[in-house]
Design a protein around this nucleic acid. Structure first.
Lengths: 148, 148
DNA sequence: GTAATTGTCTATCGATTTAATAGAGATTAC
DNA sequence: GTAATCTCTATTAAATCGATAGACAATTAC
């Protein structure tokens, strides 16, 4: 399940992507417009900032802006930052692999094999879909059709 | 994330799939062999039984057996029974659709669009991979390559 | 028919995670 | 220096997860 937090993060980033470039946007504005609890959104944006997706400015004319063009911010990145690895099991993750505690033999584990496929097909979509892709209706399905 | 419970369920079903057909297997045997807490496994098997994946027999010669051939039991079914819908959001589910509480306009929701694709590619794998598929090394990747 | 063995069912528990809130602190514009 | 903003740490209430306990029901063996 995608967490509420990740949903809020995506909504905030999409809001910033539609805003005028280079002009900081208040947290309170995003919170109001996207119906996200302001205090909660503060934590989320801070997290995104620490991971380099957004920049911030303090003080009276402060606010947040995207750190890169919307075409360079992908669903996969955002979800990994907020919710962790895309894989359904630690042992099926490629960016944050961790052995299962109770796994008898990883080499032959059928569950892992299947979930690796699921993680790969999920990542193929989420890591190839940017903010601008969804804003312009360019879906990863088209991308996939193009031969990725 | 796949729950521990769903992992146990898959392990139990794979164990039954390898056992001699038509002969009931004790819960305690599965629990011992697969290192699953017995009391916990009872609940899981009961759940699988209620959904028609396994049969059970009470009394001294009791135990559990598969209700259908291993080629007719799919990962997707099992995971849905234990963990719920495959989709990452209720509004992106096809078997258990539910509107998001805080969704402004579902028709234009970019998050939903992307997660629908993720759910479809996930379901394509999990609903086409059976117990016997993974036991014989026939992966859904091969299936996909075959043109599904 | 009764004891032993197995599955069935309901309730509960402790730990963790999730979504959110509170409030003090740091920075900037004016 | 004051008002507005972002920053940071702590806390909370509710839900979920993994597991356990114990009474009950069915079947078999003797």
């Amino acid at each position: 399940m995608l967490s509420q937090k990740a949903k809020y993060a995506m909504r905030a980033l999409l809001y910033l992507a539609r805003a005028e470039p280079e002009v900081p946007v208040f947290i309170s504005e995003i919170a109001d417009q996207q119906s996200v609890p302001k205090k909660f959104l503060e934590l989320i944006l801070l997290d995104l900032k620490r991971h380099g997706l957004v920049h911030s400015q303090r003080g009276k004319k402060g606010g947040y802006l995207l750190a890169r063009p919307p075409s360079q911010i992908f669903f996969g990145q955002v979800i990994r930052i907020i919710d962790g690895p895309l894989a359904q099991l630690p042992c099926a993750s490629r960016t944050a692999y961790r052995r299962c505690d109770d796994c008898q033999d990883e080499k032959t584990c059928e569950i892992r094999k299947v979930l690796l496929q699921v993680r790969d097909s999920t990542a193929r979509i989420l890591d190839n879909t940017s903010l601008s892709d969804v804003m312009t209706g360019r879906t990863a399905e088209l991308v996939a059709g193009a031969g990725i």
